[in-house]
C-alpha cells in the first residue's frame, strides 16, 4: 500500500492560515491503513486545527469528512457540494488523492496534509517498511521475492556490495542488506546458483527515468 506520514501541524496551519472555512478530507484506503490520513486521523487533525486556531483567535470553522478513495472520480464527485461550501481543503490522502481533488475542483485550494512516503507494508503493528519502488519491470522472480531496487540502498542488480556487514546495510546498521536477504531466501529455495548469474543493467525507462507513466487498457474503456 501507499505509506504516508502526517505533516507537522505547524506546516498545515500555515497553509490554511488565510482561509476561514476549511475541510479536512480523509481518505479511507491506503492512508487509513497506515494511520496517516484515514477517518480517524482526519478527525484528529480537524480537532487539532480547531484548538490551535481557537487559541490564536481565528476562525474555528474546520470540518472533517472522509471518502473511500480520493484517487477515483466516482468517490470524489459525490462531495462536490461539500467542497463548494468551504474555502479550502486539507487532503490527508496521498499525493495521488491530493492531485485528484485539485484536478476535479480547479478553483478550490487543495493542500496536502500528509507526506506520501513510500510503497510498503506494516511488518508489525506500528512499523511500516518500504517494499516496492514501482520500477515498472519486476524482477522478483530472479531475486527470491526480495526486491533489490527498493530494499538495497544502491538498488544494486548484482550485490551485495562491500558495505554489507554482518547482514546489515552500511547506510543504516538496522537495515538488513537486501542482497543478504536475497542470498538467504535463494538458499531456502535451493536456488543459490542464481547468485552466480550476472544480471544485465536494468532498463530504467520503465521507471521514473522514462517520464510520466501511463497504462491504457482498451478492454476497460467505456
Amino acid at each position: 500500500m501507499i505509506i504516508a506520514q502526517r505533516k507537522p501541524l505547524e506546516e498545515i496551519k500555515e497553509m490554511v492560515a488565510s482561509y476561514e472555512k476549511v475541510l479536512v478530507l480523509g481518505c479511507g484506503t491506503c492512508v487509513a491503513v497506515c494511520f496517516a490520513g484515514g477517518e480517524k486521523e482526519a478527525k484528529l487533525l480537524a480537532s487539532e486545527l480547531r484548538m490551535a486556531r481557537q487559541m490564536e483567535g481565528k476562525s474555528t470553522q474546520i470540518i472533517d469528512h472522509t471518502i473511500q478513495r480520493q484517487c477515483e472520480w466516482e468517490f470524489i464527485d459525490p462531495i462536490k457540494e461539500l467542497v463548494a461550501s468551504v474555502d479550502a481543503v486539507v487532503s490527508t490522502a496521498c499525493g495521488i488523492g491530493v492531485q485528484g481533488m485539485a484536478e476535479r475542483f480547479e478553483d478550490k485550494p487543495i493542500f496536502p496534509g500528509v507526506n506520501t512516503t513510500f510503497l510498503g507494508m506494516p511488518v508489525q503493528p506500528g512499523e511500516f517498511v518500504e517494499r516496492c519502488q514501482a520500477c515498472g519491470d519486476c524482477i522478483l522472480d530472479l531475486t527470491g521475492g526480495v526486491c533489490p531496487v527498493a530494499r538495497c540502498a544502491k538498488s544494486l542488480m548484482n550485490g551485495p556490495c562491500g558495505g554489507s556487514q554482518n547482514g546489515k546495510c552500511e547506510v543504516n546498521p538496522e537495515t538488513p542488506c537486501a542482497w543478504q536477504l536475497i542470498y538467504d531466501r535463494l538458499a531456502k529455495l535451493g536456488q543459490l546458483e542464481r547468485m552466480m548469474e550476472i544480471m544485465p543493467a536494468k532498463n530504467w525507462s520503465t521507471s521514473r527515468d522514462g517520464g510520466l507513466r501511463k497504462i491504457i487498457r482498451e478492454d476497460l474503456k467505456l
Binding site: P8, L9, L44, E48, M51, A52, M55
Partner: peptide, 8 residues
C-alpha cells in the same frame, strides 16, 4: 505529543 504540538 499532539497536545504539545497544538500548544495545549
Amino acid at each position: 505529543s499532539l497536545l504539545d504540538e497544538v500548544g495545549v
